[in-house]
Write a protein that binds this DNA or RNA. Structure first.
Length: 1166
RNA sequence: GCCCAGGUGCUGGAAUUGGCAGACAGGCAUGGUUGAGGGCCAUGUGUCCUUAAGGGCGUGCGGGUUCAAGUCCCGUCCUGGGCACCA
């Protein structure tokens, strides 16, 4: 009875579906185990053999866990929103919804080609998925909850004090009670401070504006990565080498109003969480890298007010702005004519009763304040008796600016001072006791540095061209140069800027900053080596310690002071931290990196010019896409302010549009929808025409969510996929917790895997889930590469070059790599006169390259024929008649692997020539002696465009799903990338045939109930041990070879006992479930093998009494000797030395040393 | 430049608490079975010397530790992946 795998597999796949064998229950006595694969994007191309690799591994583990008594959740679904469906829609006009459905469930594409669909393809491989829990991210029942989570994010802010996300209503309560002064939140940088009174006075819109700066998802105008070809913005992780990940289109910087996710609030927790999860180290490393935490200091360098002055150093008390020279006379005048109240107060203040020095009518920026205590940064303003509204507004404005410079302001009215001077002084005293608030605002240049120890090495400062201060500080002389530079660098695309890191460019602003510790005057430059997006967009340049600063200084002739003891910096900067001593640095001289860093921060803090700071590289994630095929935002706009649609009216369904392109006005595709307005009375989507008619109807958001929205929480939905009340019920989530084992590719390291962790932490903070991390253990499966086939083409080219004498000549250029290949001569180009076309085809479209190639050909001409082993080309050339000159060279061309004969590397020349894709070669000549053409093969990523795709469907038909499963595992370690070679599958296929035979006597099934031999029991238990260890270590390739060894041994032993064959069937069931079920049934079991108890390993069958000792002399094994295992060291030594062979080896010498390791080895030295 | 992973036969790979390198497969070769092909079975297959017995050399390269190194240490080269004017 032979092994009819197709019948067997179809039978059991049907059985599993019918009996819902793998349906997971949310209630069970068994312990739970959650195994998950990253769900696929269902593309029109269907599955290739690379896709199921991870699914097979996870399936084996899930099945293994079922055998060992776990309640296993092993679901599957589709990440069905995404760009390719939309691109396809743009091209063909078909609805993405329809094409996506066909890609999953099967059907026909527009050309009428049959698409079998992901589901059918997956089903054929025999996975133990619980399909009753399937999710599709593009299903309104699913994205309803994606929208819901978005609303929760909108309704939350991040409280740094409690290190948690909290409801936005908590924040508004705090604002009403105490303003925002004490709020320590993750929020936008430019937050204006306000009191509870001011908060109450804000209009509704102003309040919404303020709150947007705190929300975890917020609308902000920011510089984004705009991809004109795709018509959308991209997140940082969707850009690779300055071009879009999908399609490879250029990306430019553009200012746009976009939804963003405040993931930066979670930077530290995302970093800390990594230590609690069992993920591959490289993956953790790349997340760590991406988050990019760096420890250092934030330092503020004040800007010199009179850069064009006599070069005098500005004293610390001169706090005036750029217009000080105009105001200073006015201030003097005011000092001489004080009001009554001013006079009274000044007399008290100048008497130093309060213990602090005050100044009168002093310049701060472009304002003259009445009194100021510079050391405590306290301003005292005296107001007239009658205060008009307009005056009050002006005062508030003025207070804000002064606040931003780091001064507090107290105001008293004239009558207060005159009426109760003691009370006023008491108030001032209280203010003086408070700490100085470091300046939060404008005039200083704030920089972030990881090397505060090198602060005395600063010789200039550099701002990013986009820096907001640039316009303000640039002197009139430099204005032109600076503007030109800014314009030039703004024009450069991101890619250009990245490609060109070598060119040093920059311009002096004319402004100077003041060193906060030395008081020295430091020139301020702008340069595009400083990135606007990182840190503060400005750097303190320490040329001796940073190569970029060094290069910049060298280029522009700026000074390079050396602050390292005994280090030569005449050639390059010195960036080593350890073992370095700081010199020429005032109080830091002589200190190590660590000591100096700490001292520098202390000193900066003392003068309120800086503080220690942790900076993160990770930016907030842009969450809007100008696309159609994504989740619509549950958002409408009232007076330009975003409003959330109430939860109970979700989902907000994606509208129909006629075309999937942006509108003429450049709006996203949803701008084409005619029914896309929100009626706040009826709470439904209504026609846009009503927008002007009714006051309760508002426009809906036109952007959609990015691809990662739906995938950031789907693992929770599987726990309770039918729930209509909640995204996952509390009980279901508490039961399944999180994913125990997650399989997927490492390419999602900084996208999906980071965003999922972020959302999970957020949901935990808001108590929607009870876990902090989504995936406990993660395994990255490696990519299966396709074996692309290549043909090697030589093409004769005429009128190609001339030698020095003006004669045309003959030559061959064949890459050395191709010397052992067979060639195909293409005639297609012979007829073509214009060689430029050929150049283009080969990439030699550059004049220099052409010249170089020509030269090389001439110099190599003399010895090329010797190097070239296949003489047929030479013969061909020699036989050419009436041709004076010809040059030939070879290149390779991909050929479709379906044009090969069988599984061999031989090209079907007839079909190749007839193939339309290779019509240039229809009259080609194949240079081979034996009439065969053997292609070259190279591993590459499997893809349709490379003609190297192997479909699992064909493999299943030819060899069966069990063979496919075993082979994919047998190929090599799971995490490794490895090439696919269909020919190799015969190994595992014949193994399965042998296994089948083991359970059969000739034509009939037959097992005996007799006792198995000791050898068979040993083989079985050895296999149980090895396979179990391997499966726990995810070493599936070695367990497959263990099965092979096991079956080979049992065959040799002629084993047919149930005692061995029954446990073996269970053992192999996770790997080859179909054949295992069939054998299990034939063994007389009625239930599926899926939940049969896993065989237990028993040591006793493996106990050996003897060991074949390798006997080595000076480390080289010469022979082996079988000895009982219970011998002592001495006994072993005695027996070995007594052996005849030992005596032969020693040839009468006495050993210097004898090493005996019982149970392992004997080594005789001498 | 920085971080990570990895270099073992013709190919995929096995062996890393230091203990007979090349398990298990594919390929190739020879033989058997078969009308033929496919299939199946058997044997061989790191490399060099040798009729053989046997021996030399062998895990990218160079050193070192050890009775013993693919495995540990130092240096170096190469390949693949990630990040990158990140201050």
């Amino acid at each position: 009875m032979s092994y009819h795998f197709n019948e067997i597999e179809a039978k059991w796949q049907k059985y599993w579906t019918k009996n819902q064998t793998f349906k997971a229950e949310n209630k069970s006595d068994k312990p739970k185990y959650y195994v998950l694969d990253m769900f696929p994007y269902p593309s029109g191309a269907g599955l290739h053999v690379g896709h199921p690799l991870g699914y097979i591994a996870s399936d084996i583990y899930a099945r293994y866990k079922r055998h060992t008594g776990f309640n296993v959740l092993h679901p599957q679904g589709y990440d069905s929103f995404g760009l390719p469906a939309e691109q396809y829609a743009i091209q063909t006009g078909q609805r993405p919804e329809d094409t996506t459905r066909v890609n999953i469930d099967g059907g026909f594409d527009k050309e009428g080609n049959k698409i079998s669909g992901y589901r059918k393809q997956l089903d054929k491989i025999g996975f133990s998925f619980d399909w009753s829990r399937e999710v599709r991210t593009s299903d309104p029942d699913y994205y309803r909850w994606t929208q819901w989570i978005f609303i929760q994010l909108f309704e939350s802010w991040y409280d740094i004090e409690t290190d948690k996300a909290r409801q936005i209503s908590d924040l508004t309560e705090i604002f009403s009670a105490e303003g925002n002064l004490k709020v320590n939140a993750a929020c936008d940088d430019e937050i204006v401070e306000f009191s509870p009174g001011e908060w109450k006075l804000f209009s509704s819109e102003e309040k919404q504006q303020v709150l947007l700066k705190y929300r975890l998802t917020y609308l902000a105008e920011s510089e984004v990565n705009w991809c004109p070809q795709l018509g959308t913005v991209l997140a940082n992780d969707e850009i690779v080498n300055g071009v879009s990940e999908r399609g490879g289109y250029p990306v430019v910087r553009k200012k746009m109003t976009q939804w963003s996710m405040r993931i930066s609030a979670y930077a530290q927790r995302l970093l800390d969480g990594l230590s609690s999860i069992d993920w591959p180290q490289p993956l953790k490393d790349s997340q760590t890298n991406w988050i990019g935490r760096s420890k250092g200091a934030l330092v503020e360098f004040p800007i010199l007010a009179f850069p064009e002055g006599e070069g005098k150093q500005k004293p610390g008390y001169m706090t005036g702005g750029n217009n000080s020279h105009l105001l200073i006379d006015k201030a003097k005048q005011m000092r001489n004519n004080p009001t009554q109240a001013e006079k009274l107060l000044w007399d008290c203040l100048i008497s130093k009763k309060l213990g602090y020095k005050f100044r009168q009518q002093h310049l701060i920026d472009d304002f003259i304040v009445d009194f100021v205590c510079l050391s405590k940064k306290l301003v005292i303003e005296v107001d007239g008796n009658i205060i008009h509204d307009s005056q009050q507004e002006k005062d508030e404005e003025r207070t804000k600016i002064i606040n931003n410079l780091g001064f507090r302001v107290v105001r008293f009215r004239n009558e207060e001072i005159i009426g109760n001077i003691d009370f006023v002084l008491e108030q001032i005293k209280i203010q003086l006791q408070q700490d100085v608030i470091p300046p939060s605002g404008a005039r200083g240049i704030k920089v972030f540095t990881t090397r505060p120890d090198t602060i005395f090495g600063v010789s200039f400062m550099t701002l990013a061209p986009e820096h907001e201060l640039v316009q303000e500080i640039t002197t009139s002389e430099q204005k032109e140069a600076v503007s030109a530079y800014i314009e030039k660098s703004a024009k450069r695309s991101e890619r250009e800027r990245m490609a060109d890191v070598k060119t040093i460019s920059g311009v002096f602003t004319g402004a100077y900053a003041i060193h906060p510790l030395s008081g020295e005057k430091i020139p301020v430059w702008i340069g595009d080596y400083v990135l606007a997006g990182y840190g503060t967009g400005a750097v303190m340049s320490v040329p001796c310690g940073d190569q970029r600063d060094y290069d910049f200084a060298t280029h522009f002739g700026l000074p390079i002071p050396n602050i390292f003891e005994g280090i030569d910096i005449s050639e390059e900067a010195y960036a080593e931290k350890v073992g370095t001593k700081i010199a020429n640095s005032d109080f830091l001289s002589g200190l190590s990196y660590k000591e100096a860093t700490q001292k520098a921060i202390e000193a900066l803090e003392a003068v309120h010019a800086g503080k220690g700071k942790i900076n993160y590289r990770m930016r907030d994630a842009v969450f809007s896409r100008q696309r159609y095929w994504g989740e619509p935002f549950p958002v409408y706009y009232v007076n330009g302010m975003p409003q959330m649609i109430e939860e109970k009216y979700l989902p907000l369904r994606l509208p129909e549009v006629e075309k999937y392109l942006p509108t003429e006005e450049g709006e996203p595709p949803l701008g084409r929808a005619t029914t896309w307005a929100w009626d706040t009375n009826k709470n439904e989507i209504v026609s846009n025409e009503l927008l002007d008619v009714s006051k309760s109807i508002y426009p809906l958001e036109l952007n959609t969510m990015p691809g990662w929205a739906g995938s950031s929480w789907y693992f929770f939905r599987y726990m309770d996929s039918e729930n209509q009340e909640r995204f996952v019920s509390e009980e279901a989530q508490k039961y399944w917790e999180n994913v125990d084992l997650y399989f997927g590719g490492s390419e999602h390291a900084t996208g999906h895997l980071l965003y999922s962790r972020f959302w999970t932490k957020f949901l935990k903070d808001r108590k929607f889930v009870a876990v902090e991390e989504p995936f406990k253990k993660l395994i990255n499966q490696g990519m299966i590469l396709g074996m692309s086939a290549f043909v090697y083409i030589v093409e004769p080219i005429f009128k190609y070059f001339e030698n020095g004498n003006g004669n045309k000549m003959k030559g061959i250029e064949v890459s050395e790599l191709f010397l052992d290949k067979r060639f195909i001569i293409s005639y297609s180009l012979i007829q073509k006169e214009d060689t430029r076309e050929l150049y283009d085809q080969l990439g030699f479209n550059n004049k220099d390259l052409q010249k170089k190639f020509k030269e090389e050909l001439i110099t190599k001409y003399s010895n090329i024929t010797e190097r070239f082993e296949d003489e047929s080309i030479q013969k061909y050339l020699d036989n050419l008649e009436n041709v004076e000159a010809v040059a030939v060279f070879a290149y390779k061309k991909r050929v479709d692997i379906s044009l090969l004969i069988g599984l061999s590397d031989e090209l079907d020349i007839g079909r190749f020539k007839k193939d339309l894709r290779y019509q240039d070669f229809s009259d080609a000549e194949v240079l081979t002696e034996d009439g065969k053409y053997i292609v070259g093969r190279e591993p590459e990523k499997m893809s349709k465009s490379k003609y190297n795709v192997v479909s699992p469907d064909e493999i299943c038909v030819q060899y069966g799903a069990d063979s496919l499963r075993l082979y994919e595992m047998f190929l090599g370690p799971l995490e490794q990338a490895k090439p696919w070679n269909t020919a190799g599958i015969t190994g595992v296929h014949s193994f399965l045939k042998k296994l089948w035979k083991l359970y059969h006597n000739d034509e009939v099934f037959g097992v005996s109930d007799e006792k198995a031999s000791a050898d068979s029991m040993k083989t079985l238990h050895k296999t149980i041990k090895k396979v179990t260890e391997d499966i726990e270590a995810f070493s599936f390739n070695t367990s497959v070879s263990s099965f092979m060894i096991c079956v080979n041994e049992l065959m040799a032993q002629k084993c047919d006992q149930r005692e061995v064959l029954e446990p073996l069937a269970i053992l192999i069931a996770p790997y080859a479930p179909h054949i295992a079920e069939e054998l299990w049934q034939k063994l007389g079991n009625n239930e599926s093998v899926a939940t049969a108890a896993y065989p237990e390993f028993e040591e006793k069958y493996l106990v050996e009494s003897t060991k074949e000792y390798p006997i080595s002399f000076n480390g080289k094994t010469r022979f082996t000797l079988e000895l009982p295992l219970d011998l002592s060291k001495e006994e072993i030594e005695e027996m070995v030395m007594a052996n005849e062979k030992t005596k032969n080896q020693m040839e009468g010498r006495t050993p210097k040393k004898i090493i005996v390791v019982p149970g392992k080895i004997v080594n005789i030295v001498g």
